[in-house]
Design a protein around this nucleic acid. Structure first.
Length: 425
RNA sequence: GGAGAGGUGGCUGAGUGGUCGAAAGCGAACGAUUCGAAAUCGUUUAAUAGGUUACUAUUCGUGGGUUCGAAUCCCACCCUCUCCGCCA
């Protein structure tokens, strides 16, 4: 959520900064509403002030004369009644206006950082570095071929249980998933993160708080009887964990790691990534999340990214680091670094983690503050996948595949998985 | 699902129609004391919006309503707790 005051006082620069996302933003309408609101607020508070004085006077008169029915008092009451009806009328207008403004502003994305590369879409993202040697060869198998051969997961039965884009992990596949979750959680908790296991169903307020609502209602599954949604990412409950709080600056930064299943409708992606583990309605993820002092979020952004990177390094998976351009930034983010892992079968890097600095955007929506110089200030929130489990499994299968059809398990994972390879039965 | 109790500031908790944004305690901050600390004493200490300040308004779960005036009365909703039932 952007600052309403900023929109009211400086609409041109708000438009300019937002438009660096690659499409034009026109906030003239919102601007006008905020001006109207301010005028109305001033008018109402004046009337309320008068009405309040009058009420006090009536109270005093009544207690002085022990009589609440004299002509004089009845006249005063009549006057008060007039105030009341006028105020009610204005308040009605104010309510409608407030709702309108709130809704409009909730639909505006965050300001891109001026350090983010300018660009229209994904093709303008900038590769910052690569790590490891990408495996390149001609006779490489895709992870779904490997998975089928080694009986690690299957999808046709899963559509019977649920529908397309759901998967069932089997045997070593399920074991590998579990190993990855535990491995990542252990790595991050050793590194100073506090582990949370959060509710998978979240209410609408939580989704608004992190930016998924109102604009992206289509992206999440809803349980319509209960005002509850299946959480699309642990970022949602993590943000809301401290919603409406004022956090002692001594506690900052607060660093959480949370494993969670994630549910996404993937509307509009029909026909893309239909095979394998890349794009599912339900997937597992280990998420990193920081609440930090506003002056320290740039530094924190680098740290959270390198914390996610450390997992890829430990697993010895080749990857690259990408600086997301303004046109490709997520709604709540001001700057995002993506980690993309090498998938040899498709000869390209694929997103496996997205590390974002949301500045005060989510904090304002969720009302999460801290004390700075004894004043309440919105803090900054950052999130990053550390990592997406299914995609990590896909990368391990593809990068670890051997000529004989087996898969080598990365050393760091062996204690968790219990074996250094997966072989055909 | 049935029955009951309740939601008040950072926390505990008093407040059933008038000067209450709200007693008291805890916590916190500052000062005194001290070589320093503890203890003690004193002062301060809710948020949001508008305004340069003075100040004004709003907020006692949420939304409506009654009234000149609502934390307090009425209606609806949400949530929490206890007991019973059911249950991994």
């Amino acid at each position: 959520m952007l600052d309403q005051k900023l929109i009211r006082e400086n609409p041109k620069s708000v438009e300019e900064i937002l438009s660096s996302r690659g499409k034009l933003f026109n906030i003239a309408n919102i601007h006008e509403l905020t001006i109207k609101k301010k005028e109305l607020d001033i008018e109402i508070s004046g009337l309320q002030s008068e009405s309040k004085k009058l009420s006090k006077l009536i109270g005093q008169e009544i207690s002085k004369y022990k009589n609440n029915n004299s002509l004089e008092i009845n006249n005063l009451k009549k006057k008060g009644n007039e105030y009341r009806s006028k105020i009610s009328e204005f308040e009605e207008k104010q309510r409608i206006l407030d709702k309108q403004i709130n809704n409009e502003i909730s639909n505006l994305p965050n300001f891109p950082s001026n350090e983010a590369p300018i660009g229209k879409n994904e093709s303008n993202n900038i590769q910052l570095k690569t790590w490891g040697d990408p495996l390149i060869a001609n006779d490489l198998k895709s992870h779904w071929e490997i998975g089928e051969k080694l009986n690690l997961f299957e999808s046709t039965k899963s559509t019977r249980i649920s529908r397309s884009r759901f998967i069932t992990l089997i045997g070593n596949g399920a074991r590998l998933e579990r190993a990855l979750i535990n491995f990542m959680l252990d790595m991050h908790t050793k590194n100073g993160y506090v582990e949370l296991m959060l509710p998978a169903l979240v209410n609408s307020e939580s989704l608004k708080g992190s930016g998924q609502l109102p604009k992206f209602a289509n992206e999440s599954f809803k349980c319509s009887n209960d005002d509850l949604w299946l959480s699309p990412t642990a970022e949602v409950p993590l943000t809301s964990f401290h919603r409406n709080e004022i956090i002692d600056p001594k506690q900052l930064p607060i660093k959480y790691v949370a494993y969670s299943p994630c549910f996404r409708r993937e509307a509009g992606s029909y026909g893309r990534d239909t095979k394998g583990l890349i794009r599912l309605h339900q997937f597992n993820k280990v998420e990193l999340y920081w609440f930090c002092d506003p002056s320290k979020s740039l530094e924190a952004h680098k740290k959270i990214t390198s914390d996610a990177e450390s997992i890829l390094k430990k697993l010895n998976l080749p990857y690259r680091l990408v600086d997301i351009c303004t046109g490709d930034l997520g709604f709540s983010s001001s700057r995002t670094f993506d980690l993309e892992v090498w998938l040899p079968s498709s000869k390209c890097y694929r997103e496996i983690s997205s590390c974002s600095n949301c500045l005060d955007f989510q904090a304002r929506r969720s009302s999460i503050r801290t004390k700075i110089d004894n004043k309440n200030r919105y803090l900054h929130t950052l999130n990053g996948s550390g990592l997406a489990i299914g995609r990590t499994m896909a990368a391990i299968l593809e990068n670890g595949q051997q000529k004989d059809g087996s898969v080598i398990i990365p050393d760091a994972l062996v204690p968790y998985f219990g074996s250094n390879s997966i072989k055909t039965a």
